[in-house]
Nucleic acid binder design. Structure first.
Lengths: 338, 338
DNA sequence: TTGTATGCGTTATCAG
DNA sequence: CTGATAACGCATACAA
């Protein structure tokens, strides 16, 4: 038999309301009474029944963290999410979302329509998915985005410095003597990707290097995208001396392609990425990249959502966390002779 | 205002109990009545309130999938878990568990003690953690393990062929002309690792190759373990011609170490792993490994747990799914002259 | 500062 | 086969 609030009230010789007050840290309880209640709670091993709370409060006390399927880009986020597990009373339900799969859309819809969650954290590219947006607006579900500012919506978000990170990385490559820097961009609806592209261009401009649009290739932020982009550039007249992939995964693909074509990294070609996924320090010869504070981003996003859920919409903000360069073995000075 | 079971009952001109029967596919409802109810449900867009169900059934309708922290070994499982998201009425709460961290132990304890979950799926090495075992037995929590058979416990489990997979891989290396095959083993309390070691030894024995115990190195199933083990073997008199890592992650580390020492893979040294993580086909030169049907393992484990939860302990079984070799570029015939 | 009574939306009991 | 009524455990107006 589980002990309920009534048992505690009886043991502490007070009403259940008083116990409730103590449990929820509400005011208007005299100190001696509060102590009696706390003792009774400890003695009986009382734990509030979360299901009852859910019912009476009309909340699911759980939230969904929506991730993009397939990519490893988000595996670092997942690691943090699984580390958190649940935050306060909120269960965290991580879910991958394939907009193209009816089954996946159905899962998301039932999650929302059956009121199984109170709020949502989204990551690109889910945040631009129309089906999802319709669900959210119909259900008036609170949302926190992990993505740069979207001027079209007024949605709280958490992100890290994309523009600045890309600019610094490009400056670094330029300082190493590189002039022909290939930039492997992501999808155009991926705002962070755009910001990185702008940062790249800003650095070139500041250095007085004329912009060659052939040096920017649109691709996907995954292994294949990087692989294909690098191959394309090396097999044609583009001939970069450095490859700056807009994501670490694409950088891995580029690294693979470059080595497959028997170029030496970094002696002949430098390669770098963006994101600093854990594996990027494990692959040979170590990927130079822009470190994003993913753990903190995830942490802040979840906290912000919980705050919105408990304190109302006003708790939503815009947060941009700093990123920084991480120099490893995949980049080196460009020697004119090679 | 959300529509409740009462609204449906009124609309269908019957009692709430009848509606409940229809919703739960219980018998003893005449067909015309059932139809009326179903129409009313559709017309009103009625969705049962899961919180009320949770309260009255005294179940959390959620389960925890416990993962080992840090390793990528489990990232493939995570991908599948996040794809499933929730199964029937059960929310799936994936959580990483660091037994050494008080915070992590606390999370797990509150999850169980606060009755937030009805059952648990465990993966190595959590399944041998004493703190967890105590929690489970104290709470009498149903568990399904993802690990080979443990004769000490009578716990339902799902796994894939570890022994056979390792044996086949070793046979393959032998067929390629390798005689000195280094085996990078995992922790001794990792049962799957032991089974792989036994498979390796069985293949050697069948081929009449005398067992050299210096060729088996105990290490960790991660990048560093593989890196260190490979270095050790190559810098000493052990001198293997092939390295069989008991996990893909360790194989990556070995691959890194071998290349760092300027050996060519696979021409001079063959390297292979176990598990077939997604990244193993992305790293250069492509890792030969044993494919485990991780998606199916995860699927079956969750389904089994839900069955136990709904149908009682009798639903638990022992399931072993098949694994198979995947040949890529990291292994080749051993030429005596090199 | 404290307590009483009511309701949240289901499922379960037991009588019809 | 069907239905009235009582839990489930908590929070919350509203009194006192």
């Amino acid at each position: 038999m589980t002990t309920t609030i009534k048992d505690v009230a009886r043991a502490a010789n007070c009403s259940i309301k008083t116990v409730s007050r103590v449990m929820n840290n509400e005011p208007h309880v005299k100190e001696p009474v509060r102590q009696r209640v706390l003792e009774a709670v400890k003695a009986l091993g009382y734990v509030p029944n979360i299901s009852a709370r859910r019912l009476v409060q009309r909340r699911a006390f759980s939230l969904c963290f929506l991730l993009h399927a397939g990519g490893l880009e988000q595996s670092a986020m997942v690691a943090k999410i699984l580390d958190i597990g649940f935050e306060f009373d909120y269960d965290i339900l991580p879910l991958t979302y394939f907009p193209s799969l009816a089954r996946s859309r159905g899962k998301l819809a039932s999650l929302i329509n059956e009121h199984r969650i109170d709020g949502l954290v989204t990551t690109p590219p889910a945040d631009t998915d129309e089906f999802l947006l319709n669900l959210i607006t119909a259900a008036q579900l609170p949302v926190v985005q992990i993505t740069p500012y979207n001027p079209q919506a007024n949605i709280p978000y958490v992100t890290s410095q994309d523009y600045q990170g890309a600019q610094q990385m490009t400056e670094h490559l330029i300082a190493l003597g590189h002039q022909r820097i290939l930039f492997l961009s992501g999808p155009r609806n991926h705002r962070a990707s755009l910001d990185r592209l702008f940062g790249y261009r800003a650095a070139l401009e500041n250095a007085g290097i004329p912009f060659d649009r052939r040096l920017v290739l649109d691709s996907e932020f995954n292994f294949d995208g990087g692989y294909t982009g690098a191959k394309l550039a090396l097999m044609t007249e583009i001939q970069p001396t450095a490859i700056f992939a807009g994501s670490d995964e694409a950088a891995w693909g580029a690294l693979y392609a470059v080595q497959e074509m028997n170029y030496r990294v970094p002696e002949q070609i430098s390669v770098c990425g963006f994101g600093d996924l854990p594996q990027s320090q494990s692959i040979w010869p170590g990927l130079t990249t822009v470190h994003q504070p993913i753990d903190q981003v995830v942490d802040r996003a979840i906290q912000m959502l919980v705050e919105i859920l408990t304190e109302g919409p006003g708790a939503g903000q815009a947060v941009v966390l700093p990123s920084r360069l991480v120099l490893r073995g995949s980049t080196a000075r460009h020697e004119a002779g090679l």
